[in-house]
C-alpha cells in the first residue's frame, strides 16, 4: 500500500540552521492499517507527513503508493488519493464559501469521472446532506451558510467529511483534534474512528495523547530524531501500558520523552 524507503530530508543545508528532519526513515503500511504515531517535539512526525503528501521532495529515498513511485509527483496530484487534516481547523475549508460549496468542491475534485465543468446534481446534494447529518451537529440544515460562521470543531468535522467523502487511499491526520476543546475533540475522534472503520481507510495519525495512541488503530509508531524507533502491533501492543511505552521510548531513544503536551496530558 504505502512504501517509504530510506527517506531523508535536511532543511537549510550548509547553514547554522541546518536541521536533519528525516534520516533514513523506512515504513511499510498494508491496506486498511490504522497507525498512530507519537514522538518528541521535532521528531519529524509532521515532516514525515509533508514528505508523504509531497509538500516538499525528499533528498534521498523513495515513496511508493499502491505500487506506484510517487517520489517526484507534485503535491496537488498526490492529494487526489491522499487526504490530509491539520491541527489548525481553519486550514481545510474555504471560509467564504458555503458548506454546500465546500462539499461540492471536495466531491468534484476527488471524483475522477467528473469533468472540469461538471456541477453537483440534486441527488449529490442530498447525499451531502445525509453525510452531514451523521456528524450530528445540525450542519445539514445550514448548507447555504458560509463555513466561516462555524466553530473550530464544526469546521474540523466538516474537513474530515470532505476528506473522506470519496474515501482516499491514504488518510493523514496531523494532530487534528489538538486545537479543539476536550468534548469536541472526543466527538471528532469518534467520527474519525467510525469513518475509517466504515470505509476501511488506510490511515496514519499523529497524536500527543499516549493512551489514544494505544487505544485507536492497530499499530503504533514512536519517532525520534527523524527515525522510527519503536513499531508496536499485535500482542505486544495489546499488552502495552502508557507507562511501559514511555519507558521503552527512553531506552530506545536514549533520551526522555520531551513532548511537553504528552507530559501534560
Amino acid at each position: 500500500m504505502l512504501d517509504v524507503q530510506n527517506i531523508s530530508k535536511t532543511f537549510n543545508p550548509g547553514t547554522v540552521n541546518e536541521k536533519k528532519a528525516l534520516s533514513g526513515l523506512s515504513l511499510h503500511l498494508d491496506k486498511g492499517e490504522f497507525v498512530t504515531i507519537v514522538g518528541s517535539n521535532g521528531a519529524g512526525k509532521s515532516t514525515l507527513f509533508n514528505a508523504i503528501s509531497g509538500s516538499f521532495f525528499v533528498d534521498e529515498g523513495h515513496i511508493a503508493l499502491n505500487g506506484k513511485d510517487i517520489t517526484y509527483v507534485p503535491e496537488h496530484k498526490r492529494s487526489r488519493v491522499i487526504g490530509r487534516l491539520f491541527q489548525d481547523p481553519l486550514r481545510g475549508t474555504a471560509p467564504h464559501m458555503t458548506i454546500e460549496e465546500n462539499l461540492s468542491l471536495a466531491y468534484l475534485r476527488t471524483n475522477r469521472s467528473k469533468a472540469a465543468f461538471s456541477h453537483v446534481s440534486k441527488q449529490e446534494k442530498a447525499f451531502f446532506q445525509e453525510r452531514l447529518a451523521l456528524l450530528d451537529m445540525g450542519l445539514e440544515n445550514r448548507m447555504q451558510q458560509p463555513v466561516g460562521l462555524l466553530s473550530g470543531g464544526q469546521r474540523q468535522a466538516l474537513t474530515l467529511l470532505m476528506a473522506t467523502l470519496t474515501p482516499p487511499d491514504l488518510l493523514l491526520l496531523d494532530e487534528h483534534t489538538a486545537a479543539l476543546d476536550p468534548a469536541t475533540a472526543e466527538k471528532v475522534l469518534q467520527l474519525t474512528d467510525s469513518v475509517i472503520a466504515e470505509h476501511k481507510i488506510t490511515c496514519l495519525m499523529v497524536t500527543h495523547n499516549m493512551s489514544q495512541a494505544l487505544s485507536l488503530g492497530n499499530r503504533t509508531l514512536m519517532m525520534a530524531d527523524g527515525r522510527i524507533i519503536l513499531d508496536l502491533s499485535g500482542q505486544e501492543r495489546a499488552g502495552m501500558s502508557v507507562e511501559s511505552m514511555v519507558e521503552r521510548f527512553r531506552v530506545q531513544a536514549g533520551q526522555a520523552l520531551d513532548n511537553d503536551r504528552i507530559l501534560l496530558s
Partner: peptide
C-alpha cells in the same frame, strides 16, 4: 454558472484559502 463548476469552485477556493488549496488536489 462557471463559478459553480469544479474548476470554478477550485478557483474560488484558491482566492479564499490558499492553505487549503495547497493541501488539496487543486493546482493554483
Amino acid at each position: 454558472w462557471f463559478l459553480g463548476t469544479r474548476i470554478g469552485l477550485s478557483l474560488r477556493a484558491t482566492g479564499d484559502n490558499p492553505d487549503m488549496v495547497r493541501a488539496s488536489s487543486i493546482n493554483p
